[in-house]
Every structure is written in structure tokens, then in C-alpha cells.
């Protein structure tokens, strides 16, 4: 017999939550180590990347490495960076000679503007379509929407982007093809630039969420309580809003969180194609410049967003689903 709500399950919730948080911190630490090790393994460093063939001038190469502190052992550099991190200091970009927090600042905001805008458009659209085609399942409408969404998802995002740019920028001239504005530009100036990226992101994300919502909606529609409600004569619309949607959304929470993590963690390819000044393009530049501390900080930040959102999704699922949070005594 399931226990009633009380201190027991609450404690259990807390324990579960704590477990997840500890796990998340551990994952972050692992990400930090792996990112550092892999970037360290790449051939070349900040100085060879910058000097190009001037690196033949050994004196200049050495001076550059000395200036940027690259001559110290890798472990020491990692230790210093990790130590600073613990005290909330992301360190200094080796190239830009500026605090990393400062370099990332507005770019993180820009990525969030794009990510949230895309989520606001894409996620409700996906959920709505999912419910719709579940209700109309196996009709021509279902087949059309499902296959269109799957097709849109299968196309690589850079292909979708190119096609949309061709139509809306080259032919119609409605939106700019690439973003040419200041990193710190007000959000109003960002808006015309994010319409095409949002369209591409929507194409990519709709199918995942929609398919999942469709499946769970079908399940809920077949459940006893929905049958009961129908037999009692509750209007269908009300059944959908009151009973089907909340229950069908439960399994979708995780995929929504994953999608959000993907959006907010910087959609590198999309940002790069549209020259969008977010953390995705910054990461690409940092990698090609071999700006290790910046690469590490960005990777960690992206991991943090991803893990954080998943953690929230986990806890939310726990909170919403009594079966998961109840002690099996």
C-alpha cells in the first residue's frame, strides 16, 4: 500500500535530489578533466596557431609561450584554472587578455535570447502538433505531419539553414543572411537576426518532442480515467486540456529539458552559419585559436547548462509523479 504524503517521502525526495546534485557535480569535474586533456592533446598551441609560419622564429615562439605562461607543466596550468574556478574565477583568456567572464558575458545573453525564443516557438508547436496527431492518429493529417517533421529532422541543420537563407535572404530579402551587429547590441536589434535561426532550430527539434507527445497522448487517451470521463459525458476539449495534456506531458519533460539544454548550450553550427555572436561561435573561435582556458570554461558552462536542466527535469518528474518518489517499503 502506498504511503500517504508526509515526512517520509519528503526525506526520500531530498535524498534523491542530493544524489542527483552530487552526481551532476562529479560529471562536471569529469568534463573539465576530459576537455583539458583532449585540447592539450591537439597538435599546436595558442602561439603556433597565431604565429603560423612566424613560429619558425624560435625566439619569438618562446617569447610568446613565456608571455602566455604556456611553458609551465600542463598539470600546473590545470590546477591553477580549476583552483580559480572553485573560487568563482573563470580565469583569463590567453589571447584576448581579458577575464573570461567578461568575454562570455553578452554572448551568453545572445545565446539565451536565441535559445529561449526558439524554445518558445518550437516546444509549444511540437507539443500541440503531437497532441493533434495523437487525436487524429492514423489519418492523412497524422501521416503528413509526422513524415514532414521526420523529414525536417533528418535534414542536416546546415542544409536547412542554407535553403532558408537562399529563400528568405537572397530571393525575398526579408531577413539578413548573417548577423552583423555588435555583441552588446540591445535585444531589439538582435530580433530580425534570429528569425531564420529560430526557423532552422524549430525544424530540427519539433520531430523529437512531437513523436514522444504523440505516443504518450495515445496511451493516456486509452487509459481508464479518460474512458470514464468520456462515458460521463465530459466534453472532449475539456478532457484533452484537463486530463490528457498534463499526463501526456510527463514523459515529455525529459526530452524538453534535453532540447532546452541543446538550445541554451549554444547551437554551435547554427550560430556559426549565421555568424551569430553567441557562445557557440565563441567556442569555435576559441578552439581554432587554441585559447585553452576559454575552451575549458565554455565547455564547462555548456555542460553546466545541460546537466542543470536535466537535473531540474529529473526533480520535476519526481515531484509530478508520485510513483517515482514514493518509497517502495
Amino acid at each position: 500500500m502506498p504511503r500517504p504524503y508526509g515526512s517520509g517521502p519528503g526525506e526520500h525526495m531530498l535524498k534523491l535530489a542530493l544524489q542527483r546534485v552530487i552526481l551532476a557535480v562529479f560529471t562536471l569535474a569529469m568534463v573539465a578533466v576530459v576537455v583539458f586533456a583532449t585540447t592539450e592533446l591537439l597538435p599546436g598551441d595558442v602561439c603556433t596557431a597565431f604565429l603560423g609560419r612566424d613560429a619558425r622564429d624560435v625566439e619569438r615562439l618562446e617569447r610568446c609561450r613565456e608571455e602566455r605562461g604556456l611553458n609551465r607543466p600542463a598539470v600546473e596550468r590545470f590546477g591553477e584554472w580549476a583552483g580559480g574556478l572553485l573560487s568563482g574565477d573563470l580565469g583569463t583568456s590567453v589571447i584576448r587578455d581579458r577575464p573570461i567572464a567578461d568575454v562570455i558575458g553578452s554572448r551568453l545573453r545572445n545565446t539565451f535570447v536565441l535559445g529561449i525564443a526558439a524554445a518558445v516557438v518550437g516546444i509549444p508547436l511540437a507539443v500541440g502538433l503531437g497532441v493533434l496527431i495523437a487525436i487524429k492518429r492514423d489519418t492523412a493529417l497524422d501521416v503528413t505531419i509526422s513524415s514532414t517533421a521526420l523529414f525536417a529532422m533528418t535534414l542536416p541543420d546546415f542544409v536547412t539553414a542554407t535553403v532558408l537563407v537562399f529563400i528568405f535572404s537572397f530571393v525575398l530579402g526579408w531577413f539578413p543572411a548573417v548577423t552583423l551587429i555588435n555583441v552588446n547590441a540591445p535585444i531589439a536589434e538582435l530580433l530580425p537576426n534570429i528569425i531564420l535561426p529560430i526557423m532552422v532550430l524549430t525544424f530540427v527539434m519539433v520531430a523529437h518532442i512531437m513523436r514522444l507527445v504523440r505516443t504518450s497522448t495515445i496511451e493516456v487517451l486509452a487509459s481508464d480515467y479518460v474512458q470514464m470521463a468520456r462515458l460521463k459525458g465530459v466534453p472532449f476539449r475539456q478532457i484533452v486540456w484537463r486530463h490528457v495534456l498534463p499526463n501526456a506531458m510527463l514523459p515529455a519533460i525529459n526530452i524538453v529539458a534535453l532540447t532546452l539544454g541543446w538550445l541554451l548550450g549554444g547551437t554551435t553550427i547554427i550560430e556559426s552559419i549565421f555568424n551569430y555572436p553567441g557562445i557557440g561561435t565563441l567556442l569555435l573561435n576559441a578552439i581554432s585559436d587554441r585559447d585553452l582556458p576559454l575552451v575549458q570554461s565554455l565547455a564547462l558552462l555548456m555542460a553546466l547548462i545541460y546537466i542543470g536542466l536535466n537535473l531540474i527535469a529529473d526533480l520535476l518528474t519526481l515531484a509530478l509523479n508520485p510513483r517515482l518518489r514514493t518509497l517502495r517499503a
Binding site: A177, S272, L284
Partner: peptide
């Protein structure tokens, strides 16, 4: 304007930016 990516540069030119 800064455009680090080569494809984005071409795109910007084709769109007249």
C-alpha cells in the same frame, strides 16, 4: 564587420550585406 566563418562570409556577400 567580423565574420570568422568562411561560409558565413560568402553568405553575407551573396545577401548583399
Amino acid at each position: 564587420f567580423p565574420i570568422p566563418d568562411a561560409t558565413a562570409t560568402l553568405q553575407a556577400f551573396l545577401a548583399g550585406q
